[in-house]
Design a protein around this nucleic acid. Structure first.
Lengths: 287, 287
DNA sequence: GAGCTTATGAAACATAAATTCCGTCACTTC
DNA sequence: GAAGTGACGGAATTTATGTTTCATAAGCTC
């Protein structure tokens, strides 16, 4: 049953192909659907990879790729691959200009567009700053303290809460023991009362500072629990309770401060801690 | 006679290769010079073509291409070709400059520093992509739907949860009525059961998709509650339940995907919604 | 539940491609 | 002007890649 359809409805460019795939994805058999998803999610891989390498990545057999291509009217996998390559070729010339045009035209034309552009720009600015405002030695020390800890207490409220909740998620995945303080108000104090100096805490608070966060950090510091904190001013109430603290000022748009830099920082810290633990575990060294 | 030189002076990226070629161009023998010129003038051809096809285009023998590659320290033509392919993969405006700046800072000296730089770079890349992947009209429609809603239901689990929790915080500040679904498992369904078509929902889910989020979105869609969603693939289970959906692929470092682009998007959406409401309220128009 | 259709996996096959090898040519050097 | 050195072209060789085939498994229909 090879291509009863006329040759005209074989997609000739990436956009057309994408449309056809999305249209038919529901009726596709399991493996072909898998390939369909992979091809749209990793178009670059399809463009550059070999049938074998792509098959491995997408977790199917090479023959499935050929079947997939033929299913959409192509002669074989190679001719389908041309579509993906053409996409990259055509994108190259004047790509930067296109982006400029996009910035100038598309979004700013519409009323909400400038808001969107504004936040993306603010995020960029924040990230440009963060590399200079975070000292590498301090970062190293922070990683050290937290990697040594038995349990890591995460303290954050309100605007900082998304940051600690990401860290909680990531620590969970990485099998790092933690306690997320601040989820349900009542039990926080009991939770903190169990902290010992074998543990450590990471607190985040930006102005206007949540008084509870500062109080909790102070409480832990008083019990000799080392505290690492992320804040936006040297005058932050967190600073005095912290063994290491970072000052990180986010850029803003229309008064709404970005979270990108803090988020990137949090991710880096999280992974660095896990990485350090992993390495020490491998070397059989005591922490 | 194979590469007595240390492996360090083999160019690892396109810019470095270009520099080396230009530097040595004068001393190159005739055919190699010919290849050098061709490779810099038609980098895309090198990336996609086969040695034979490139040889024909450049009017040399295939073996000359191999010699050319080996002349610059590569093992063979194929490994040289990788450089040209990588160039197309990674091409993002301003990216190279940013990365250079990052390499220059003091973080790269310390062990955890490269992790930090990596996440900052990934965040930048994500933000560079987001402007092209989010269509302004779709954004406008999403704002429209959510601005009209009485209550906005925020659906997100696990990795997406920080995003919705930021939105919850911001909506609270902006006096936009919302319900955050997913905090305590038990009451979610009761909460959603109260949604009507006067309301709307915003769902976020990235692969591997949380099945609850998809189910909740489907439930709401079934009850004629308009759903706007943010996800990372056209095959996301969220797409089918959504009136408007956005595909946003975050760059990653060491397998940990950034959240910067999603966060910027969420902020923009949040503020745009509030802004639209404010304006309509001022004008005394009915929504 | 039997029989048919369709989908899937694994390996064999054929082909295309990269690389190596070697003879020839041009240019330099003594 | 002869010998030596390095570049070049083209064919041979080897590698690896796309495609086909076939046996098996999974769905579906009657």
């Amino acid at each position: 049953m090879t291509t009863p359809e006329s040759t005209t409805d074989i997609p000739q460019d990436f956009e057309a192909l994408k449309a056809v795939i999305l249209e038919r994805k529901a009726q596709l058999p399991k493996r072909l659907k898998q390939v369909a998803a992979y091809s749209l999610d990793h178009p670059d891989e399809i463009a550059f990879g070999t049938a074998a390498s792509i098959a491995t990545s997408a977790d199917v057999q090479p023959s499935t790729l050929v079947r997939f291509a033929q299913h959409f009217g192509f002669e074989g996998f190679s001719s389908l691959q041309q579509i993906f390559r053409a996409r990259l070729r055509e994108r190259t010339p004047g790509y930067e200009d296109r982006l400029k045009a996009l910035r100038g035209n598309d979004h700013s034309k519409l009323e909400s567009g400038s808001i969107f552009n504004g936040f993306v720009a603010a995020a960029h600015r924040s990230l440009d700053n963060v590399a200079t405002s975070i000292g590498p030695q301090a970062f190293e020390r922070a990683v050290d303290i937290l990697a040594k800890a038995d349990t890591i207490y995460l303290i954050a409220k309100r605007r900082s809460y998304p940051i600690s909740s990401y860290m909680a998620y990531a620590f969970g995945k990485l099998r790092v023991k933690y306690q997320h303080v601040g989820t349900a108000a009542g039990i926080d104090d009991d939770m903190l009362a169990m902290a010992t100096k074998q543990d450590a805490a990471f607190a985040v608070s930006f102005s206007p500072y949540a008084s509870e966060s500062a109080a909790q950090a102070r409480f832990l510091a008083g019990r000799k629990v080392p505290v690492v904190s992320l804040t936006d001013s040297a005058f932050s109430p967190l600073a005095e309770s912290s063994k290491v603290w970072f000052e990180l000022v986010e850029a803003d748009h229309a008064g709404f401060r970005s979270l990108s830099a803090s988020m990137a920082f949090a991710m880096a810290l999280t992974v660095a801690i896990a990485e350090k633990r992993r390495r020490h575990a491998e070397e059989g060294k005591p922490l």
